[in-house]
Structures are given as structure tokens and as C-alpha cells.
């Protein structure tokens, strides 16, 4: 697990109130427990705060899985 995955998985786990070990690259909205459209925004804001970045509005709705968030961060 690289450092970016640690940050993103930790943010997801904290928002969803799940153990971080249960989060992986396959975790996503509507599949992972407690991850819905409401908590999705919480996750993105948490990642923004942890990393000091801001996602573009046009990206927000596409960022609904741990993989998509990490891939977006890797592009920046």
C-alpha cells in the first residue's frame, strides 16, 4: 500500500466508520457498506482536507470509488 492509498483508505474508513483494513481498491459507492451519495461527499472533503487539495466540481461526481479518487490524485 503506497502513501496515497494509506491517506485515501484512512479517509474512507473514518467517514464510513469501518476498519481501514476493510477498504481496498475495489471499495466504491453503493457497494461498500455505508458508502452512498451522502457519505461520498464527506469522503471527498475529508481527502481534500488531509491532502490540502481541492477537487474540481466537474470531477466530484466521478470520484465515487477508492480507485477513481487515487487515480485522480495521481494525475495531479
Amino acid at each position: 500500500m503506497n502513501s496515497l492509498e494509506v491517506v485515501v483508505f484512512s479517509a474512507i474508513a473514518e467517514v464510513l466508520n469501518l476498519p481501514v483494513t476493510s477498504i481496498n481498491l475495489e471499495s466504491k459507492i453503493d457497494v461498500t457498506e455505508n458508502w452512498d451519495s451522502l457519505t461520498n461527499m464527506d469522503i471527498l472533503l475529508k481527502v481534500e482536507d488531509l491532502l490540502g487539495i481541492t477537487f474540481a466540481a466537474s470531477d466530484l461526481e466521478q470520484l465515487n470509488s477508492s480507485r477513481s479518487i487515487i487515480e485522480k490524485l495521481q494525475l495531479n
Binding site: S37, L38, M41, L44, L45, T54, A56, A57, L60
Partner: peptide
């Protein structure tokens, strides 16, 4: 009723 207004400020802060 429950989602749009809750999410909207995040988008508004980004100019939407």
C-alpha cells in the same frame, strides 16, 4: 429533500 441542498454548497464553492 435530503441530498441536493446538503451537497450543493460544495459545488457552489467551486463555481456551480
Amino acid at each position: 429533500r435530503a441530498h441536493y441542498w446538503r451537497d450543493f454548497p460544495v459545488f457552489y464553492a467551486r463555481g456551480v
